[in-house]
Design a protein around this nucleic acid. Structure first.
Lengths: 147, 147
DNA sequence: TAGATAGTTTACGTTAACGTCAACGTCAAG
DNA sequence: CTTGACGTTGACGTTAACGTAAACTATCTA
């Protein structure tokens, strides 16, 4: 076949692109999350490895452990694709979706509070006479803010 | 004052309610995230402590470190509330908001992929003749799915 | 008075996700 | 040939967030 190397990367290229260390890529390989080919000793990553890595890092950013990420990647490998295995995969998948949706709700709640707090303190000023905090527009006093 | 203890909790009560161990609560206190009163030796948590704990745990669920959570809680303690300090607080607050919004986007992206994958495999079946995976409705073959 | 129960401090153990360092291989350039 | 640049495999170190066990205290109950 003509394009034997449609797009390949060295470990340093890939680690630089995603701003992780080579050590991290080797570690992920150790954990079975990546399995680049070898040219002699050296690891040679292809486009699929690159996409997997992006997946891994995004999973990491949303708080999954490497083990969980590994599981999720495995979901995609139905392999021979037996029926029972497919059902298990689907359930696992739905669990993950539930967890992510719950987490998104947590994020929304936290955002709401932070945004409320931010707008509060940006509308805050000192009363000239009493020295206490008041709302800049309404002039209302702010007793005690906090969670 | 009459209601000296509007609502208080022992360490075991609080830990049971939030499904964490007493050890965890002591650890959070060690890190300065909680500071319940003492009756003699024993810790006695009030309603405010309870709310702080809920905050802490939610922060933990969305992936913040305890140090970051501590910072965020400190944001609420403007204390004497000097002007410069208030500006710093506001900036930190906005940074956190940015980070959370980015994380929410990561979650949305992951959800989209997982949901697409889930619907794919739930619409999947075997072709009677070829034995290959095909779409149950359209009958179209599925070459290779994965990230 | 003696457990039983609930709490305390102190201190060492554990796991995940790498960082860091040492010792070595390999290959093109000077 | 040797000097880098780039890579490799161990192997040990590190940090965060608790777990766990030991030894002790205080209070309530039988």
């Amino acid at each position: 076949m003509a394009n034997d190397r449609s797009h390949n990367y060295s470990i340093k290229q890939l680690s630089a692109e995603f701003d992780v260390t080579p050590r991290t890529l080797r570690y992920y390989e150790d954990q079975g999350l990546l399995s680049p080919e070898r040219r002699g000793q050296q690891r040679i990553y292809n486009a699929a490895d690159r996409i997997r890595l992006a997946w891994i890092l995004r999973g990491r950013r949303v708080g999954f452990s490497l083990a969980e990420i590994g599981e999720m990647l495995d979901l995609y490998d139905l392999g021979d694709g037996r029926e029972t295995q497919r059902a298990v995969t689907l359930n696992r998948c739905k669990e993950r979706i539930k967890a992510l949706e719950a987490q998104r709700e947590d994020i929304n709640a936290t955002l709401t509070e932070l945004q409320g707090f931010a707008s509060l303190i940006s509308n805050l000023t000192r009363d000239h006479e009493t020295g206490k905090w008041i709302h800049a527009e309404t002039g209302e006093p702010v007793a005690h803010f906090g969670p």
